[in-house]
Every structure is written in structure tokens, then in C-alpha cells.
Design a protein around this nucleic acid. Structure first.
Lengths: 135, 135
DNA sequence: TATGGACTTGACTTAAATTCTAAAATACGA
DNA sequence: TCGTATTTTAGAATTTAAGTCAAGTCCATA
């Protein structure tokens, strides 16, 4: 019952960018990777996904790097996890975003418990925006 | 943010055995696998783990099979997930059972949110026993 | 036009999930 | 009592997906 490291990395990267959103400065992949101890090459892939998702903007060349495309208070944690992992249900078949057949459907009662958990997790992370995560 | 299928399978197997706990009958791996649509060979491994954990008893030979070692109300879902996956924290470093360094530690605020989620999930599943999951 | 960074592709590594092969125990019929 | 079918037990091989690494290409800007 855990988050993928992909989502964790994505959140950490966005936190870094959120912290420097005010000044409008850029941060390079290398800087983010070093400060948050994330494998650089993996982070490259993750930032590309975030870019395609419209969360960050990139600038090439010397002095290039990344910055947020929206203000931190307009990005919540739930949507990032969804973008990275597809869904954020404790069990996939509980997801309201897409339905996949998983074995747990065989027990309606267990399924309903996980549905409650999903809603709690979902609500919590939906309300958590990145401006709240700045140090 | 999801459960391993291993845990799902373990819970489904225990639900099946809980349903026939009254009569004291046995159920074979094959029967459980078919009724819950679980890969049989994988289920064999899972039931062995449950056996070593003291949750089920096994009997070989024709008419053999598995049955619960305790009554369903004495087994909760949390301990099964812990047995299968090691911990049930939404993020491992939040686990109170063993501590592992994960990248999310880099953000204390995010970590504390996940700690709250973990406690909620943990409490919910700790209180959920298998007698409540019988159809 | 040279450089520092983003981008692209592909391959490697590890762990989860699944399947394969074979052995050991037991009930039951001949 | 023996043999056989049925079941669990065990270890290992295979597959698949997540995570990681390597080498190089493209591009803005100083």
C-alpha cells in the first residue's frame, strides 16, 4: 500500500519549483535532482510528463531549465499522482477515474471498505496544493 | 497508491475460508483459486505464507485442503497486508514498523500528510476483521 | 558559433507476479 | 497392504513492469 517513487519524485520536483515560483527563476534538472536526491535521468522523464500535462514550462540552452506553468496554489497533489500513476485508489478497481478488473471485486464488502479509504485519500490530496508544501 | 495483488489474493483466500469456518470443512487451493479467479500457483505460495504466519492449517492428500487456524473475528486485514507486503504505509518511510529512507523525507510537510493518511488507513484496516467480510 | 541545458532513444537492473517441475504426504479402492 | 489419485510443499524459471542508466541529438543564447 504505497505510492510509486515516480509520484514522489514528481511531487518533490514540483515543491522545488514552487519554492522559486515567486522570483520567476528557472531551475535545471541537475539542481532539482541534487537537492532532492533524485536520479537525474529518471527525473528527466518525469519532468517531460509534467510538461506535457501543462504543469511546467521548459527553456533550453545555457541558463535554461524549468519553472511552473501555474501558480502553486492551483496544483494539487492528487492530480499529480493521477498523472503519474494513473489513479490513486488504494485498489485500482475502486478508482472513479477508470475502471479495471482486479480480483478484489470478488468481495463486495472488502471493495466497499477500500472505496471509503479511496475517498478519504482522494479528498485529502485533492485539497492539498503545492503552496502549502513550501518550506 | 495501491495494494499489492499478493495482499488482495491473501484477503480473498481468507474470506473464502472464513465463509466455511463454521462447518469446519476444508477448501482446496484449486477451489479457492477458481472461485476467486486467482492464479493457482501463486495462491499456493500465498497460502504457505499464511500457514507459516499461523493463520491457516493445511491437510494433505485427497479430501485435504486448508482451513482457518483462528476464528475470523480474530484476524484483521491490516495484519494480513503487513504479513504479505511488509508494511501498509502509503509511503514506506511513514511506516511505524520499519524505517526505510525514501525520497519523500526531503519534504517534511508532505511527509506529515502521508503520515496522517497512513494512520487513517492503518486504523481502519486494523479494526476490520474477517467475520465482517463474509457475504 | 560554442555551450549548457532540455530532449530522445534504447538498454540495463531489480522486484513483483506468474508459471513450471518435481517431491512428499495422505485417503481410498483393489 | 499396495498402488494410485489427489492434495500440499518446495524450488526455480519465466514474464512483466518499474526504476535506472548511457549516449547522443537538438536548441536557445551568450
Amino acid at each position: 500500500m504505497k505510492l510509486s517513487v515516480k509520484s514522489e519524485y514528481a511531487c518533490l520536483a514540483l515543491i522545488t519549483l514552487s519554492e522559486m515560483y515567486e522570483g520567476g527563476e528557472l531551475s535545471s534538472i541537475t539542481k532539482i535532482a541534487e537537492s532532492k536526491e533524485i536520479p537525474k535521468k529518471y527525473l528527466e522523464q518525469i519532468l517531460l510528463i509534467l510538461k506535457r500535462g501543462g504543469y511546467v514550462r521548459s527553456y533550453k540552452g545555457p541558463k535554461g531549465g524549468y519553472k511552473l506553468a501555474k501558480s502553486p496554489d492551483q496544483i494539487n497533489v492528487a492530480e499529480i499522482i493521477r498523472l503519474m500513476d494513473g489513479a490513486l485508489a488504494p485498489v485500482e478497481s475502486v478508482s472513479s477515474y477508470f475502471f479495471e478488473h482486479t480480483p478484489i471485486e470478488k468481495s463486495p464488502k472488502l471493495l466497499s471498505v477500500f472505496r471509503l479509504l479511496r475517498n478519504y485519500i482522494s479528498d485529502t490530496l485533492e485539497q492539498l496544493t503545492f503552496d502549502e508544501l513550501i518550506e
